[in-house]
Design a protein around this nucleic acid. Sequence first.
DNA 1: TATTTTCCGTTGCAAAAGCAACACATTATG
DNA 2: CATAATGTGTTGCTTTTGCAACGGAAAATA
Lengths: 210, 210
Amino acid sequence: MNTNFDMQNFILDFSNSCQKQQKKIFSKNEVVTTYIKNRNQLCILLDGHADLVRYDLNGNRTIVEHFSKNALFGEVFYTITTNNELLVEAKSNCTVLFYIYDDIFHKCKNNCKFHQTLSENLPQLILNKVTDLNMRIELLTKRSTRDKLLGYFSLLSTRNLSKSFELPFSLTDLADYLSVDRSAMMRELKLLKEDGFIQKIGNRIILLYK
Amino acid sequence: MNTNFDMQNFILDFSNSCQKQQKKIFSKNEVVTTYIKNRNQLCILLDGHADLVRYDLNGNRTIVEHFSKNALFGEVFYTITTNNELLVEAKSNCTVLFYIYDDIFHKCKNNCKFHQTLSENLPQLILNKVTDLNMRIELLTKRSTRDKLLGYFSLLSTRNLSKSFELPFSLTDLADYLSVDRSAMMRELKLLKEDGFIQKIGNRIILLYK
DNA sequence: TATTTTCCGTTGCAAAAGCAACACATTATG
DNA sequence: CATAATGTGTTGCTTTTGCAACGGAAAATA
């Protein structure tokens, strides 16, 4: 199995070769899918950005996950226990492939090359998702808003191989992602600037500490 | 592939048939493993309970995950970015199988039945881990200590198919698991009792709401 | 381009959570 | 069995966070 499996090329080659999938295109702010118990949908984001969003009974909005190119999502990854609404919202124009997980799992009758390759590579793809989720948990378990912000910035910095990077969120969305109040986060952001930890120019953050 | 793959029976049948694994036994409070960058260890907990614990620079202790029988863990699931210490502590006597992930992935030279079955079932096993992590994220994104407690209790209640259940943690550990201050959590627990949401007898919680 | 909508930045005040400390109970351990 | 270590329950005080509200900037839309 290849750790560096190239999803994008693979998809381009095979995405039209199987009957058991649906390809759809969404424009910004459209709802890509809603999580429904027992349907076991699995989706692949071919292009664009989308967020998994939860609205709870207190009216709080939480960005549970942020998806970019090649991300996997769908209720197959989620045990839906509460009555909270879970939906995936397109943050830009998106191209999405839809499957029912069992179809991938059991392969389709045609035994097509697409399904074969995908099911071979599924463990690695899902494993990537696990490491993403663990990073998210590391962020969320930080005890203060300051540590959450610094933790998230440090993650983006590592990903971009630079102390300077663009935020992939609006500040409103960032607060919903870190699961904190927006105004409290703005206050902390201001303190981080005043204390010389960061610089912020438009949507760009520059880390000033070693 | 079988969703109800019986790990335990499988392990019992095959756990001695492959060279590329190590089986070890730990007693309570021993360190099962420490997460080390790039080693890509994968472990299976055959029996007992263990916690993945993180100690951060502020001296806070966080229980990142709680493992019971058949749980998968190891740094293969974790991108180690920070300098925080990550270790798995046995909470009771434990039996653990150790692998290097690549050995499972690429199958061992013998092409033994054990590896074959395990790699066939790995997607489903990892998928279970994903759903667990998503439940954990749902808990951690709750905004108040009260909601975290109620969320966790409701989860245990669902798992035990009963409004009454034992806590798998000491209260000290529960606070570290929910990522809140212990004394603040105790205060909230008291309020939940006073407000008639729960009853607590020893280590047992009884949910009193519909 | 005019107008509506969303986002940013800020603040005062209230509520929640964290910190530190302590007594007592329970559980391990020599 | 005595003693040490760990866990529980509580409280006063401080700090952090959340809530509500507002004006202006920026972006989307008609």
